[in-house]
């Protein structure tokens, strides 16, 4: 266990980097989000937790342009970005990973890295090679950082599941986004890799990168995050430092509901259900 309870960083004041304001979204008759408001302070690691179906991924999708909000607003650094298309959101500085890791399988690992960098290359010539020497070096450094540089020439589909997670993290970082949204970075990977991923996130955060993490693994979230927000039935029911959230009766109620086993207290319930 490498997790510490040292989460002491300041909360999301005064001006949050990422903010949602009363975001609501319904799918047919199902209200996925109802007035969800979250804040992520610059330079922090924020966690977003909640039971299955509480709207975490939907909120991610709305922030990153993959779904449209019925109402409410999303702000990045004070700028309204509500319902912009994904490519715009990305170029404004929000990178994300997906719960089910999404890489480009028939391209090489290195080519995967180049895709995320291309939007910055303002060349008038469409036939220009992807990536200058500097961005190629940067891509290699990032692959090295996550530890899969030796697979750079291999097709991405040959990577293991854990390596794919690392690749997805690396290529999101290529574009140097202001904030990285991670959807279950520890889902379905072995414990030692979970520690590796947590270590990389800490290292990046120490260098100033902001994170918002959806995760079911409570040890991971509680050990890593400065601030945790809890979604239930589409709205935020609690927010604060991990220790405080963990003790919040509303959170326990949302997670445990009625008639749940006590041994789910550490939040392994979700991980058990979705880890597959």
């Amino acid at each position: 266990m490498t997790m510490t309870e040292a989460a002491t960083a300041p909360s999301a004041s005064p001006a949050p980097l990422l903010r949602t304001e009363s975001v609501s979204k319904a799918f047919g008759g199902v209200q996925a989000l109802s007035g969800a408001s979250i804040e992520v302070g610059r330079g922090t690691i924020a966690g977003l937790i909640g039971p299955n179906g509480s709207g975490k991924t939907t909120l991610f999708n709305i922030i990153t342009g993959y779904a449209r909000a019925d109402s409410g607003q999303v702000y990045l650094d004070g700028r309204r970005i509500t319902n912009l298309p994904p490519e715009r959101v990305f170029s404004l500085g929000i990178g994300r990973t997906f719960q089910l890791t999404r890489i480009f399988p028939t391209m090489t690992v290195f080519e995967n890295m180049l895709i995320a960098g291309q939007h910055k290359e303002r060349s008038w010539n469409p036939l220009a090679r992807a990536g200058g020497a500097a961005s190629r070096r940067h891509a290699m450094e990032l692959l090295d950082f996550v530890g899969i540089a030796r697979h750079a020439g291999a097709l991405a589909q040959t990577l293991s599941y854990g390596q794919r997670k690392l690749l997805e993290l690396a290529y999101v970082l290529v574009a140097d986004p202001e904030i990285v949204l991670l959807d279950e970075p520890a889902g379905g990977v072995n414990p030692s890799l979970i520690n590796t991923i947590a270590g990389k996130i800490r290292e990046l955060n120490a260098a100033g990168k902001t994170f918002l993490i959806v995760e079911h693994n409570m040890d991971f979230v509680m050990g890593l995050c400065d601030r945790v927000m809890v979604l239930d039935y589409g709205s935020v029911i609690a927010a604060g430092p991990p220790a405080q959230v963990r003790a919040d009766p509303r959170v326990l109620d949302a997670y445990l509901g009625t008639g749940e086993d006590d041994d789910a207290q550490d939040g392994d319930r979700g991980a058990g259900h979705e880890g597959a």
Partner: peptide, 20 residues
């Protein structure tokens, strides 16, 4: 670069959008 973008679209168009 154009070809890289096209092949990214072939592999996963929505993911490609999310990478700009």
């Amino acid at each position: 670069r154009f070809g890289l973008q096209l092949r990214a679209i072939r592999d996963d168009e929505d993911r490609a959008r999310g990478l700009g």
